[in-house]
Design a protein around this nucleic acid. Structure first.
Lengths: 148, 148
DNA sequence: ACTATATGGTTCGACATCGAACATTATGGA
DNA sequence: TCCATAATGTTCGATGTCGAACCATATAGT
């Protein structure tokens, strides 16, 4: 049977789904109370890409529906980790900023995850990581275009 | 700032999460009514790996909690796509089998997804796919061991 | 054989996630 | 200027997902 099912691309998606499960579980086991991976991911995103993004921009960055991002941001705001300010030029929109508590929390969580991940990191060749990362980024663009 | 945050492994997890979102949305847009990616994935798994697996084996294969698999299997059985039989030697357990309808459904869904994916598949070098797949499988094992 | 512990699966309650419909504000064209 | 349409974000209802507690059966130790 050499139909589409045998295309390794499907196997790739399968593997990606499984790693997603594993990494999600790994992160969430190291976050307090009811915090979930998207909470941490958004804090991290704001650090890396910059604060002052709009909710829609963040939703698009993670490829999740905008109402999902509304919910995630509400959780972060409730915990005092982000601050929501009006958009300077578009009154429909908002901008998202980290609070000091948010920066501190992200730093602590990152340190904890990094510490527990440290034993296994040396097993991965940086070159392989880079190569995989490059391919996945191109795959993301391909999927994004196929989204119609 | 060259702390753990800059480790490309985290970027890798991020990219994996995004591609997971995209591929999930892509698949589910091509499945009927209330069917969801795990439904399709399980059917596919039974075809590839073989029928007669137990729910727990399947849950471990996808790295999801066993109660989540209970729910997914219930959905498949309700739709008549799988059949649950008692385990021959362990009365706590069960075995999962595809029905004819399940095999047919999986074939149709696979064909539809494959057709819509066809335009973008040529953009990916088979060699890159293989390389990525190999690395991700090793990454999965690393994470699995780190699971404690 | 008997009990303690482990294992497979389900139930339950809490919560994340999503599509669809909605309110509000922007934008573009007559 | 005015209206139709688009864009941003929220609300609502339905459902997926998960951890914890729970049954039923197996296994191990004595």
């Amino acid at each position: 049977m050499s139909d589409d099912a045998s295309n390794p691309v499907f196997e790739l998606f399968n593997e990606i789904g499984i790693i997603n499960q594993l990494s999600r579980a790994f992160f969430e086991a190291r976050l307090p109370n009811g915090m979930v991976l998207p909470h941490f991911s958004v804090l991290n995103h704001l650090m890396r890409v910059g604060e002052g993004r709009t909710p829609l921009q963040i939703a698009r960055a993670f490829q999740v529906p905008k109402n999902s991002m509304t919910h995630t941001l509400a959780g972060l705001e409730k915990r005092g980790l982000i601050e929501v300010r009006p958009h300077p030029s578009d009154r429909r929109s908002k901008t998202i900023w980290l609070t000091d508590a948010g920066r501190a929390f992200r730093g602590e969580a990152m340190a904890r995850v990094g510490r527990d991940m440290a034993p296994v990191l040396p097993e991965m060749e940086p070159e392989d990581v880079q190569q995989t990362l490059a391919f996945l980024k191109s795959l993301r663009e391909v999927l994004d275009r196929a989204r119609d």
